[in-house]
């Protein structure tokens, strides 16, 4: 068993996109330091329900940092203060007894709020729909080992491919840009020969969709890299720009 913490939580409550939101303050006692942040929210929600109040709506699913469902600003940091960590993998041992913790939803114009900490990230999916894949019909693929790939390229592609689509990059960006998100997918497929036949179309259409959704553009603040739970590097944005330039010139 870990130690026990007393905490003050200030959580953003908002009934719907149209309703007015505000911070509510809650006191919690005896939070185990071995609990995860979302388990701490579970404890709060049990207490709220038993007191006849509305639990805090928040998204969470795999609780092992891979599905990308969870996410909130914790004391101003997307997914909290620990690097390369989703909210569900953030553990309470990082906090001190009697801390005050401020919890807000991810905010970006293109990811509007639904309720409390839940936001609408369908814009991210629509960007993928514009070309975040290789068009390969089922059953039409050649033998897997007929495509040779340098180990370094496979590793770099994997580094980019790890994106979980949580939206933290856009939430942390001063321009609410989804550049790191878009760059991760463009990069992965630009680094692999399988992605080359469609590379120009892919980068152009994904970027067009990104703009259309209302995401901003990159001005090199690099906040995205700092908050990315998978540690995806901003060098992927450079690769995205290179791909875009290449597409323009072709």
């Amino acid at each position: 068993m870990g130690k026990k913490l007393a905490l003050t939580l200030k959580i953003w409550r908002q009934e719907s996109n149209k309703a007015k939101g505000k911070f509510e303050t809650y006191k919690l006692k005896d939070i185990d330091t071995d609990a995860s942040f979302v388990e701490m929210l579970d404890v709060l929600n049990e207490e709220l329900a038993l007191a006849g109040k509305q639990p805090v709506a928040f998204e969470t699913d795999c609780r092992e940092g891979i599905c990308g469902c969870c996410g909130a600003m914790v004391n101003g940091h997307a997914h909290g203060p620990q690097r390369e960590t989703t909210l569900c993998q953030l553990h309470m041992r990082l906090f001190e007894n009697n801390d005050t913790i401020i919890v807000e939803p991810f905010r970006a114009k293109a990811m509007p709020l639904i309720k409390d900490l839940i936001i609408d990230r369908s814009s991210l999916t629509r960007i993928i729909a514009k070309g975040g894949y290789v068009s390969v019909r089922t059953g039409s693929a050649p033998d897997a080992n007929s495509i040779l790939i340098r180990k370094e390229n496979a590793e770099a592609a994997m580094d980019a491919a790890q994106c979980i689509g949580c939206g933290a990059c856009a939430a942390a960006c001063p321009n609410a840009a989804a550049m790191l998100y878009t760059a991760a997918k463009v990069s992965q497929l630009a680094l692999l020969p399988q992605g080359h036949p469609e590379r120009e179309k892919r980068v152009s259409e994904m970027l067009t969709q990104m703009d259309k959704e209302g995401f901003g553009n990159c001005s090199n603040s690099y906040e995205c890299e700092i908050v990315c739970p998978k540690g995806i590097s901003v060098t992927n944005i450079a690769r995205l720009n290179k791909e875009y330039l290449r597409a323009l010139l072709n």
Binding site: A141, A157, Q194
Partner: peptide
């Protein structure tokens, strides 16, 4: 089972590779 690997590699799934470029 083998067709699945072919399909996924063609899709750009970044499976681990050896130095010779093979899976």
């Amino acid at each position: 089972s083998n067709l699945i690997i072919d399909q996924c590699v063609a899709q750009g799934v970044p499976f681990a590779r050896e130095y010779g470029g093979l899976l």
